[in-house]
Every structure is written in C-alpha cells, then in structure tokens.
Amino acid sequence: MTALLFVIHGTSKILGFPDTSMSFPPPWTLFWIAGMLELIGGLLLLVGFLSRPVAFLLAGEMAIAYWMIHAPESIYPVVNRGEAAVLFCFIFLYIVFAGPGPWSVDCWIQKRREAEGPLGYYESGHTPGMSPTSE
C-alpha cells in the first residue's frame, strides 16, 4: 500500500493525475527528478523488484524532501506538513533491512536461483538434449 501511495505522488507530478500544484514540472528540475523516482521507484517496490536498493534510494529522497521542503518552515512535522515524508522515509528504511517479502519478484528470483543450485543450469556443465548421467 505504501508503494501504491508513493506511485500516486509520481503520477501526480509526471502524468498530471491527479492534478496538483506540482503537476508537470520542467524536465530535470528537482521536482521532475522526484516525480520520476516516485513513479518508477514506487512501481518497482510495488512488484518487489530490486526492493532493497530502490527502497534505500527512495528513503534518501524522502529525507532530502523533508529537510529541503518541509523543515525550513518548522522542525516539527505536524507544523510543516512533513508527516508523509517522514513516514515514507522510515517505511522505506524498514524495507531496506527487512527485505521485500514473500510475494515479491525478488523472492521469486531468489527461489529460482536456489532451485538451480550454486551453479546455474548452464554453468554446471549441462548441455541441451543431454541428461546429467549420460556421460
């Protein structure tokens, strides 16, 4: 759910849906880069692909957002409306350390690698059409 909410921040900035005051920032500006990170990073987290590095990057984005956008108004999140940035930051840090979860693409890839053994299918000397015992 966190990733889905984060994607909505990205679609708002990059695609203009839903339309907000930050919709359609000029390319390569800070808000455009943030929107791309939110859109692409949120989608990657939503499916659980490259979860730990993406979550680390997004936690950093939210820390920067808090200190650059919200904190100059006040240090207190309830005053500067930075609660979402703080929550996103710490949820993403949790994902960095806890991992993506059992329904993620990362988990599927890991289970597939474990099933192939320490060496992949082709690296272990198998050739197509030959059984491992027909030597």
Rank of each mutant, 00 (worst) to 15 (best):
M1P: 01
A3H: 05
L5W: 09
L5E: 07
V7W: 00
V7G: 01
V7N: 03
I8F: 09
I8Y: 03
S12M: 07
K13M: 00
K13A: 02
I14F: 01
I14C: 02
G16H: 08
G16M: 06
F17P: 03
P18W: 10
D19E: 09
T20E: 08
S21C: 04
S23G: 10
W28R: 10
W28P: 00
L30N: 11
L30A: 15
W32H: 10
A34I: 03
A34H: 03
A34P: 04
A34G: 12
G35W: 00
G35P: 01
M36D: 00
L39I: 01
L39K: 00
I40K: 00
G42Y: 01
L43V: 15
L45W: 02
L46A: 13
G48R: 00
G48F: 00
F49N: 02
L50R: 06
S51F: 05
S51G: 15
S51Q: 08
R52P: 02
V54T: 14
A55I: 09
A55R: 04
F56V: 04
A59F: 07
A59R: 07
E61D: 09
M62S: 02
I64M: 10
I64P: 00
I64V: 14
I64L: 10
A65C: 05
A65R: 02
M68A: 12
A71M: 07
P72W: 07
P72H: 07
P72V: 02
E73P: 00
S74Y: 10
I75A: 15
Y76F: 11
N80G: 08
R81C: 06
R81S: 14
G82H: 03
G82K: 01
A84V: 12
A84D: 03
A85W: 01
F88L: 03
F88G: 00
C89E: 11
I91M: 12
I91A: 10
F92H: 07
L93G: 04
Y94G: 15
A98C: 11
A98N: 13
G99T: 09
G101P: 10
P102V: 08
W103A: 14
W103I: 08
C107V: 07
C107H: 14
I109T: 06
I109A: 10
R112F: 13
R112L: 13
E114M: 12
E116W: 06
P118W: 03
L119S: 10
G120N: 07
Y122P: 01
Y122W: 14
G125Q: 11
H126E: 10
H126K: 13
T127K: 14
T127H: 15
P128C: 13
M130P: 02
S131M: 12
P132I: 09
T133W: 14
